[in-house]
């Protein structure tokens, strides 16, 4: 379905970020949806009938106590883990029915990822780390490097482009990781505790730059966090408790 995305189109999307968020309407249903997700590791159930819906360009926080299954929900939604039961649809396609290669391609082209500890490849420089997802998808080195630099600037870490991950601070590392997640102009970015290892000031900065960049490019964000101050950067939150998800978000102010 996404073979149509040529590399050229990618670069256009990178260089001229379009705001998909503003143009997307609720008419066509959720971009990413899940219902009745169940997943058990051994005999321990991690998800027990969780539902989820994400509209284009929306930032959704997934909250819940530790061990509630929020990371598992993210892994299922991103096609990293196959749920035991339930369906996941992305852009009208059944993700659970895809084979590994198609899910990988999906992750490569349409999704981006930010993890708690950055998980930058330690041997590569920051710029190379950011360029990596594009290079994995076959983009020419020069183009990938240019796009990487653009995103490093956007996340205000272009000064460390030539350094390796062990030579920069945790906050800088997370911003490089965000740049890496956004460089492919993904439609959904999955972030698992992106500020979990940072102090509140660096965490705030990461979240501010992250959500602003995501909103500008129209990327939807699934943000797993247990910190309310981080969740406050979202449009809406769902709570996962004992493997079930619930949405308590109130209507925006004024409806009361």
């Amino acid at each position: 379905m996404h073979q149509a995305y040529t590399h050229r189109v990618y670069l256009v999307r990178i260089v001229l970020p379009m705001s998909l968020g503003s143009s997307s309407g609720p008419a066509s249903g959720p971009l990413l949806g899940a219902s009745g997700l169940r997943k058990a590791f051994g005999s321990t159930p991690a998800l027990d009938g969780a539902d989820f819906a994400l509209s284009p360009g929306e930032v959704v926080a997934v909250m819940g106590p530790s061990g509630s299954g929020k990371s598992t929900l993210l892994h299922c939604l991103a096609g990293i883990v196959r749920p035991d039961a339930g369906t996941i649809t992305y852009d009208g396609n059944d993700v659970t029915a895809m084979n590994d290669a198609r899910r990988s391609a999906l992750r490569r082209r349409d999704f981006g990822f930010v993890f708690q500890f950055g998980q930058l490849v330690p041997e590569l420089t920051c710029a190379e780390n950011v360029a990596l997802p594009l290079r994995l998808d076959g983009v020419r080195r020069k183009d990938a490097d240019r796009a990487a630099l653009h995103w490093l600037e956007r996340l205000e870490v272009d000064s460390v482009a030539r350094r390796r991950p062990d030579q920069i601070s945790g906050g800088q590392g997370q911003r490089v990781a965000v740049a890496r997640a956004l460089v492919t102009a993904p439609r959904v970015v999955f972030a698992d505790e992106p500020t979990g290892a940072l102090d509140s000031l660096s965490g705030e900065l990461v979240m501010r730059l992250f959500t602003e960049a995501a909103r500008d490019t129209g990327a939807a964000v699934v943000l797993v966090t247990h910190e309310t101050r981080v969740a406050a950067y979202s449009d809406r939150e769902i709570t996962v408790r004992d493997g079930r998800s619930r949405d308590f978000t109130l209507a925006p102010a004024g409806a009361r």
């Binding site: 309310t228 969740a231 406050a232 449009d235 408790r241 619930r246 308590f248 978000t249 109130l250």
Partner: peptide, 20 residues
Amino acid sequence: AGDLLDTQRAEHLRLMRILT
């Protein structure tokens, strides 16, 4: 009581979003 608390959480978060 759980729903009560979650609703209250949501209200708190709503305000936090506005402040953020």
